[in-house]
Design a protein around this nucleic acid. Structure first.
Length: 205
DNA sequence: CTGACGATTCACT
DNA sequence: GTGAATCGTCAGC
């Protein structure tokens, strides 16, 4: 990165309101540097998962399994899991140890390493689907389930603040995608998007 | 051990 | 709009 930036510290993630953090993650930059290949993008879509009381969360009812255990770990930890046997979905763990909050990163606007992302995704045509949707984000940045449990403050996956901020008017809040199984909790306003950004997935309002 | 299923994506009608 | 891909996870037997 050429510009000055600061890696988000544990204190950023160690807060009790997961939706506040999800909103603040918009505009931050997610960076991976594996094998000297640096890829990065500005976060433009997130979803909050409110732990034990959220039927849409894997940790609903404080369900602890091998897979969900990292959500009960330190704030600022990566939670990556396999969806539909194909897609590796990347999340950030928030709140204190033992409180399983998480935020799904659903879309990025690419900022660095675009040709590497294109190689990884095997997309022949370069377009806005490169990092649109959580499956594409992980594929483009080279994130896999074996990265689950990594400390985002000191590892090859990091989230940084370069001082950029979206204006309040540029941010919209909607219900989450693909969580119909959660009953009433599917209606919660837990998805945060940058208005009119072409990398935002699914419905735009 | 077994079966059902998923915080998705893409090709196709 | 519909359906397939594809496999780890998890509950239940």
């Amino acid at each position: 990165m050429e510009n000055d930036y600061e890696v988000l510290q544990h204190s950023f993630y160690d807060r009790s309101n997961v939706t506040v953090i999800a909103r603040e993650l918009l505009g931050k930059i997610l960076i991976t540097s594996f094998d000297n290949e640096i890829t990065a993008g500005r976060i433009v879509e997130t979803e909050a998962y409110n732990g034990a009381v959220d039927r849409a969360s894997h940790a609903y009812g404080n369900r602890r399994t091998n897979r969900t255990e990292v959500m009960f770990g330190k704030p600022g930890t990566a939670y990556v899991y396999l969806c539909y046997g194909i897609h590796h979905l990347f999340n950030v763990v928030t709140n204190k140890k033992e409180i399983p909050h998480a935020i799904l990163i659903r879309a990025l606007e690419p900022t660095e390493g675009i040709s590497i992302m294109q190689d990884r995704t095997r997309k022949k045509v370069l377009d806005n689907t490169l990092t649109r949707g959580p499956g594409n984000v992980s594929k483009a940045l080279g994130i896999f389930t074996y990265h689950s449990g990594l400390d985002l403050v000191r590892s090859d996956i990091r989230i940084v603040d370069d001082g950029f901020q979206y204006k309040k008017k540029e941010i919209a809040v909607t219900t989450r995608i693909g969580v119909d199984y959660a009953g009433p909790d599917a209606l919660l306003p837990y998805r945060f998007i940058v208005r009119d950004n072409p990398y935002v997935s699914g419905k735009r309002r």
